[in-house]
């Protein structure tokens, strides 16, 4: 884009479960796999620690996309946390879509501690999707923008 002074770089918040995806992110790092630095990781004890308010708050504070990563279904450290998270996020994302908010700005991925490559690939793909969507306008809070 010749006219653009600065290319749009989305801010991404990634909630990562301590027992899997957070370690997956680490592994991606140790293996020197690239993923954009604009992905800000927030470590949570389990994917089900994340309630809808977390997702909304992330958007309020300037995120353009929010992704939740947890252990694969069946592998949750607390056995069932991610099953509950799965239902909650399904319903929440569907509601956001119903309100006309771009559904591609939210995502859930199951990434284990051994899947460094999947972590990097997931983030690259998500960043690409959100970049295409542009800035988050529909769930923004102007008071939180610089």
């Amino acid at each position: 884009m010749p006219n653009e002074v600065k290319a749009f770089k989305p801010k991404i918040v990634a909630f990562c479960c301590n027992w899997c995806s957070y370690a997956g992110a680490d592994l991606a790092g140790t293996n020197r796999l690239n993923y954009p630095a604009d992905v800000k990781i927030i470590r949570v004890p389990c994917s089900c620690r994340v309630n809808p308010m977390f997702i909304l708050r992330a958007f309020q504070r300037g995120a353009d996309g929010v992704i939740l990563c947890g252990c694969h279904p069946g592998d949750c450290h607390y056995t069932t946390g991610n099953y509950y998270a799965r239902r909650r996020m399904t319903l929440l994302f569907s509601m956001l879509d119903y309100l006309g908010i771009e559904k591609e700005r939210t995502r859930v991925e199951w990434v284990s501690a051994a899947e460094g490559a999947k972590f990097a690939a997931t983030m690259n793909d998500f960043v690409e999707t959100v970049t295409r969507l542009g800035e988050n306008k529909r769930l923004e809070d102007l008071r939180c923008k610089e």
Partner: peptide, 23 residues
């Protein structure tokens, strides 16, 4: 209640992107 329950076969949140139509 549905939100204090689950099954292993529950749909993935990605259903929101893949189901047809505008929704």
């Amino acid at each position: 209640a549905p939100l204090t329950n689950y099954t292993q076969e529950d749909v993935e949140p990605s259903i929101v992107y893949t189901r047809g139509g505008n929704n």
